[in-house]
Design a protein around this nucleic acid. Sequence first.
DNA 1: TCTTAATGATAGTATTGCTATCTTTGTAAA
DNA 2: TTTACAAAGATAGCAATACTATCATTAAGA
Lengths: 226, 226
Amino acid sequence: MEHELKIKMNEKLFLRNPEETVLGRKIVHHGLLLINKLGFENFTFKKLATEIETTEAGIYRYFENKHRLLVYLITWYWSYLEYKVSYTINNIQDPAIKLKNIIRVLVEEPRNDGFTSEFISEQDVYQLAIWEGSKSYLTRHVIQDNQDRFFKPYKDLCEHIAQILLEFNPNYPFAHSLASTVLEMSHSQKFFLENLPALTDFTIKDKDNKIVEFLESIVFNSIQVK
Amino acid sequence: MEHELKIKMNEKLFLRNPEETVLGRKIVHHGLLLINKLGFENFTFKKLATEIETTEAGIYRYFENKHRLLVYLITWYWSYLEYKVSYTINNIQDPAIKLKNIIRVLVEEPRNDGFTSEFISEQDVYQLAIWEGSKSYLTRHVIQDNQDRFFKPYKDLCEHIAQILLEFNPNYPFAHSLASTVLEMSHSQKFFLENLPALTDFTIKDKDNKIVEFLESIVFNSIQVK
DNA sequence: TCTTAATGATAGTATTGCTATCTTTGTAAA
DNA sequence: TTTACAAAGATAGCAATACTATCATTAAGA
């Protein structure tokens, strides 16, 4: 039995819910592919419209602008990750094992593992998160976007991880910062490895194992009770 | 006696060296201010031209496009940081003290401390690094830009810090990744603190001390010889 | 004084980032 | 079965962006 993952998206992210129509799903699906192909800066609604054989105006009926589409996709990813994290640590008692599982989930490129949504591919949205994730909040309207709760999935995920860090060591004073550090670095180190390898100690051959080791070492050495 | 800091910029970053002319320096100086004011996405050469009472075409004679100007400013910042790092640890033997000094230099907002260039304000370029720094490399042309050595100052700085980490513990296997983590986090955590505080454990009141503590704890717990 | 580099002034073009309007189509209630 | 209504298609248009090109003017240096 497949478990279709249904993520409740923030309604302020769109003008018309893209999940509900064929065109909407095409916009999200091909939007993701096209941003990944061109990079966010070179991506336009015009190009997407051509790709899916609709009109620019048609896309604007769903999303106010391309940044909203980006945030839509990235928040989907965070929600998806949060679900995956909850799922993988379910029934585990030992916070150390929980944390190890979480780090592995963060670092490993997702496979099609049954969480899949119909129209958002986990692999693709993971690549998007690596390349474009921080552009979702590095804007002048971050405060307003935050008030509109666009970053709630990210903050929830961070909070979740922070709570497990505190479960391990209730006196650790930087649980949230350490959680956001691990989240950010799981993307950055991967980007660096592939594009600016001098900023890391990994090689493509290492696959994900060394990044996992690195993040584990940071986490456990930090929260260890002395 | 003032020590004017002269940073040798990568020549591929510009079409005409902006340091050498009044207009060039105005472009860099006011470009920095205007990107900080508007955010990089909303910044245009047209707006900058109006600001400094020249023409768009005039600016294009110096920089191929606004991204090159961004990279120019950000690499200036990295070079400046590298200089500052070298300066602050000069004559210090103990790698632990070196590292503490470096972390403080990374986290503390620069004051006018005599390293100042004539036309680039350290405070402003520091704000730029926090808000727009990662956009300098999060592009589809990162590989080409890297081949053109645009990121050499960043990599040098990372290498420098990595070497000191290894001085402390020659067996630590993730010196470069830890160095880039500290570099990235010194910006991210600051951005989060000011804009998405739920991702941190700091408050504005804490000033920089807590971020310093946090980064110190990560670094020293990681590299400690067991 | 001549030369040349830098700047200014102006124009133009393709693309981007939208908004507006009008028509067609497909479904669903009356 | 007609009606009606929402979604999508088609088309137009407009201001801003991201450039490039050309020609005139100025300023400094040889």
